[in-house]
Amino acid sequence: MLSQREGRTKVLQSLRVMLVPGRYGLERWSFVLQRISGVAVSLYFIAHILETGNFVGGITVWTVPEYSFAEAAHQKSVELLKNPVFDVGLAVIGFLVALHTFNGLRLILTHFGFLVGKPGRPEPFEQPASLNARQRALFWLSISLAVFALLYTLDALMGVFRV
């Protein structure tokens, strides 16, 4: 069993490996981004369930309340949440959700052995078959769709692209 100090060092080392892509190329970036977006969206999901619970009156309410009570609770939640900081935060979550979704679809395909190429006879300094152009194109497609999601969410929340 590790001591507390060794344990802390181990976790810090793991964090460095998980968060710093280094010089290993695009797939490593995909690994890091998938991990960061997964954890961030999971935490957002927990907060989102708690927050939507407040729309009908919070954790103390377990029976159907009066309509006016729920409406007032919703109004209170909206007043709390409707500010530019939350809007920008939500837009970033939109980016991460889209990235995790589309990159995740690509990863499911690769995990089932699609799009990774076939074993061959490698030439010296040849790009590995599994890290091929289709994979790179799909990764950049995920990034592009995530950027679209970011801009669309910003517009939907703050109307930034409207005159």
Binding site: F45, I49, L50, G53, F55, V56, G57, V64, Y67, A70
Partner: peptide
């Protein structure tokens, strides 16, 4: 435990909002 809580709490929200008149 966290997963069960989230499911139950979320289901409660959905049911209340569904039945609210």
């Amino acid at each position: 435990a966290v997963g069960v809580f989230l499911t139950v709490y979320g289901l409660r929200t959905i049911l209340i909002a569904h039945l609210l008149v």
